[in-house]
Nucleic acid binder design. Structure first.
Length: 328
DNA sequence: TACCAGGAAATCG
DNA sequence: CGATTTCATGGT
């Protein structure tokens, strides 16, 4: 991507950025350490640094938007944030390929056209998505922040707030279960402790997984306690650049059924469809679909179905009462 | 109150 | 093996 960069007070400014919308990037479920401000900007802690990101449309006739990054400089941008935001990748071409002969995908893309898949740290992604299982996104965010405040390094203040980095493997490995218990982890506490111990014993082995093939990486990640197929796909997609990964969760399963009419036959049907339909761009497709489903409320129970379950509930109660009566 | 939440591990047949 | 049950907790 071609863009102009200027250093300004307290940060930098990039003009001519295309396919970049902070709300799409941070609210498509790939990242948990962000906070939205009233003005639409996002503050993020990553890699023991804090930045604030804002994007506004350029002057009429100019392509792309103007991106401002606060609390950083040009050197750090090239060393860290350019890769973190995946700015070297041509998302226009990706969207064009995905939308070709696929009206569902074209519509999904129109809702999340500014999505980019961040390049996050493997260790942070590993633990974050172990925490994600069977929980809603606000709760996951709360747990991650609690871990950082309790066990992470203090990385400074910005905008009048104190920020903490993600805890080192050592810090979580030697944490006491009762301390972790204060972070709303539930039964995931044991997973975090065991996985942290495994990584702390040999941190390099985690970072080597990125170089392995998809199948080998998938297997290696599944060997961590608390990591199964879905979480392994998330880690590979969000921190290892394995973009053919396609995490399937409850949202995606329902959405694939509603939008593409598949999945009734089970998980394997989705896998083969995804490979055929999206090829090695499956991960990008998943993010567009996930954002679309969440912003449109797809996958939430429809009103009619909700009424059905309410009726079924009433029916169960009524029958139970009848049983109780017949007992007498 | 009962049910659900970006699932994975243990257990069952 | 594939299918089902259990797991701890907060929110609604």
């Amino acid at each position: 991507m071609e863009y102009n960069m200027k250093e300004e007070k307290g940060g930098i400014r990039l003009e001519g950025i295309s396919d970049f919308e902070p709300s799409h990037i941070f609210e498509c479920g790939q990242c948990f350490r962000w906070a939205r401000k009233e003005d639409g900007s996002y503050t993020i802690a990553a890699g023991n640094r804090v930045i604030r990101v804002a994007c506004r449309k350029g002057p009429a006739g100019r392509r792309g938007c103007t991106l401002t990054l606060k609390n950083t400089d040009i050197e750090e941008f090239y060393g860290k944030w350019q890769d973190y935001f995946d700015l070297q990748r041509d998302y226009g071409a990706i969207k064009e390929t995905l939308a070709e002969n696929d009206d569902v995908m074209r519509k999904a893309i129109s809702f999340g056209e500014g999505i980019r898949i961040l390049n996050q740290d493997e260790w942070e992604t590993l633990i974050s998505f172990i925490l994600s299982q069977n929980r809603s996104i606000p709760l996951i965010q709360r747990s991650v922040e609690a871990l950082c405040r309790r066990f992470g390094p203090r990385i400074g203040t910005f905008d009048g707030k104190t920020y903490y980095g993600f805890p080192e493997p050592e810090a979580l490995a030697r944490a006491k279960p009762e301390d972790l218990g204060n972070c709303c982890l539930g039964y995931r506490t044991g997973y975090v402790l065991k996985t942290a111990a495994k990584v702390a014993a040999d941190p390099q082995s985690l970072y080597k997984i990125k170089e392995a093939s998809w199948a080998e990486a998938f297997q290696a990640l599944n060997d961590f306690p608390g990591v199964g197929p879905k979480v392994a796909n998330c880690i590979m997609l969000f921190s290892m650049g394995k973009y053919e990964s396609f995490p399937v969760d409850v949202w995606v399963r329902r959405l694939m059924n509603i939008l593409y009419g598949i999945g009734e036959e089970g998980e394997k049907e989705i896998g083969s469809f995804v490979r055929r339909q999206f090829g090695d761009l499956g991960g990008f497709a998943q993010q567009y679909l996930f954002y679309y489903a969440r912003t449109r409320g797809l996958g939430k129970r429809q009103q009619t179905e909700k009424n059905k379950t309410a009726e079924a509930k009433q029916e169960r109660i009524r029958r139970k009462k009848n049983v109780d009566r017949s007992d007498r």
